[in-house]
Simulated assay, not measured.
Amino acid sequence: MTDKIKVLVVEDEAIIAENLRYSLDDLGFDVVATCYTYQEAVESIHRSAVDLLLLDINLQDSNKEHNGLALAKYARETIKKPFIFLTAYNDRQTIDDAIVLQPNGYLVKPVNSATLFATIQLALERYRTQSAMDGNAKANDAPDYFFVKVGSRTTKVLWDDVYYIEAGKNYVKLRSKSTRLDYPVRGSLSYVVEQLMPAGKRNDFIKINRSIILNRNYITGYDANYVYCHNDKFENGKTGLQQLVEQFKA
């Protein structure tokens, strides 16, 4: 059973906070708390296990220094978890102030569910990668995975289990050997490979035609027309054939 990602929401507008909570719940995340003030957030940080924070930049507080920027600094020093800034503003100064704190994501309200899910997924991967680079985690010990919405649940899928990736119109479809399910990820093939996939895994995947990439570790054979991977076969392209000959030459 996959554990849900635990999210702390800090938003001082009640309607927006509730909409975020409903959206996150629908996407399969676990909202551990919804906080309206800096102090409530600090207390929740100490009280609850949190995987990621959604922080409104402009909190209405009697202490003007108790805003989302200050809370991000506090959270980073206290629990060292990824955070995403939420703001109703997209002016240059607000963005510049936020960038200095190196957030793992940035969202301008109002936020739709698809954008929210994609931003959280990317934020978690960015944090994992940055932690490894900073030496806060050993690269070999870091989990190589991504999160995807399957029904009402957000599911963790290991890149080592993915043997097939195919580009569609608006989504990229990935297939895992463990479940044989097709996992849809919004975006392009290049987005999945260049931004979501860990750099250390990219050499395991071979593009056999314009829309399909296969994990070389599961390729069992090939000919001029098809590539046989895991228990499936896929149409081979000229470029793909050349790569296969080079990769698997005797």
Rank of each mutant, 00 (worst) to 15 (best):
K207Y: 01
V162P: 02
N104T: 07
L71V: 06
I84K: 01
D25H: 03
K138M: 14
A75Q: 06
S44K: 12
T155A: 13
E235T: 08
T2C: 12
D144W: 02
L189T: 13
D96H: 05
V150W: 13
T87W: 01
L101N: 01
D141A: 15
V9P: 01
F83T: 00
K177R: 09
V172P: 06
H66Q: 15
T155G: 12
K80M: 15
A132C: 14
A72V: 02
T34N: 06
Y228N: 02
V31R: 05
D161E: 14
N90Y: 14
L55P: 01
S44M: 15
F117M: 08
D26P: 04
T78W: 08
R128K: 15
A132P: 03
A118E: 05
K64P: 06
I99H: 00
A41T: 06
S44H: 13
Y74P: 11
N67V: 00
P103S: 02
T94D: 08
I206Y: 01
K80N: 15
L214K: 01
E77K: 14
A14M: 08
D161S: 15
T2Q: 12
R186G: 11
F85S: 03
A75C: 09
D25V: 00
V193R: 09
Q242W: 09
A41F: 07
Y228M: 05
L69I: 13
D30W: 07
N225A: 02
G200Y: 10
S113G: 06
S113A: 12
R153F: 10
K73G: 14
D30V: 10
L241M: 10
S131F: 03
G187F: 06
A118T: 09
A88M: 13
I95L: 12
I45S: 10
R175M: 09
S23G: 03
I165M: 09
A199C: 06
Q242R: 15
S152C: 07
Q130S: 09
F117K: 03
S188G: 12
I212E: 02
V192A: 08
V150F: 13
I5M: 06
A167L: 04
V185E: 12
D160I: 04
T34M: 02
L52A: 01
E11L: 01
D12R: 06
N19K: 07
R153P: 04
T34V: 10
Y222M: 08
E125Q: 13
C229R: 00
R175C: 03
T115W: 06
I212P: 01
K201Q: 10
T119N: 08
